[in-house]
């Protein structure tokens, strides 16, 4: 599903390497953590996967397509297969929960009928079926991230990419959101999570890819995130 071969990423012409010589393969249906301290290159790696950035050298394949060579006009169709979850939620605060999720379907041209059917489904999945008409700005952080997750799921993506999804949440809410991501994964969706939350990584016992200073320093199935890394 995702295959990186000697991927390097440099910001600007004479800038420092944010990532250097990264290689890995993530299969369909996997759940993987990208871990490392701030500046390790986790976010850059996710941005490469969603093609917000393109690799300076190396080859990165997502859904068997080299995203570095993907023509601009094909980008929207790649993104429709990826659900994105952000640390700062990136919701439209002035609109309702329903509208935020429906928006993601509307802007790719889904028919109204489909939207009416699908939005309540995903809101039930994330446990917000009672808040459909609430405005996003009136929700708690945890609830806002659930809306973010519902939006990411609305278009039935094959891959969920979450960049520090619990970075702004308290420990209890963090666990709720992570459990939701796990159950989404159990339904067959590939999930990638960038985080520096050791407790969560150690609790979940999933695949862990370690980054440090832009280099990949480890890749373990059922890995642990200890101070050694």
């Amino acid at each position: 599903m995702i295959e990186a071969k000697n991927v390097s990423m440099k910001y600007g012409k004479n800038g420092q390497y944010a990532l250097s010589d990264i290689s890995f393969f993530i299969d369909r249906g996997e759940f993987a953590f990208f871990v490392g301290s701030s500046g390790a290159g986790k976010s850059t790696l996710l941005k490469l996967i969603i093609r917000e950035l393109t690799p300076s050298t190396g080859c990165l394949k997502v859904f068997n397509r080299d995203v570095g060579r993907l023509p601009r006009q094909k980008l929207p169709y790649l993104r429709r297969n990826i659900g994105m979850v952000f640390q700062d939620f990136r919701l439209i605060e002035s609109r309702t929960v329903y509208d935020n999720v429906a928006f993601a379907m509307m802007v790719i041209g889904s028919p109204q009928r489909e939207i009416h059917k699908r939005v309540p489904q995903v809101l039930t999945l994330v446990g917000l079926e009672d808040k459909t008409k609430a405005k996003v700005c009136d929700l708690s952080g945890g609830e806002q991230q659930r809306v973010g997750l519902a939006r990411a799921l609305a278009n039935r993506p094959a891959l969920i990419v979450a960049d520090e999804p619990t970075g702004n949440l308290d420990p209890g809410t963090t666990l709720d959101i992570m459990n939701l991501l796990r159950s989404i994964n159990q339904r067959g969706t590939t999930v990638l999570v960038a985080t520096h939350n050791r407790e969560i990584v150690n609790l979940f016992k999933k695949r862990v890819i370690y980054l440090d200073g832009g280099r990949m320093v480890g890749d373990e199935q059922e890995g642990f995130y200890t101070h050694d890394h």
């Binding site: 006009q73 929207p76 439209i92």
Partner: peptide, 17 residues
């Protein structure tokens, strides 16, 4: 611009935006 960015992330085409 936030709305536009979200539209881009969920895969709206430029013309649609």
């Amino acid at each position: 611009k936030k709305e536009i960015a979200i539209m881009k992330y969920v895969g709206a085409t430029n013309w649609f935006i």
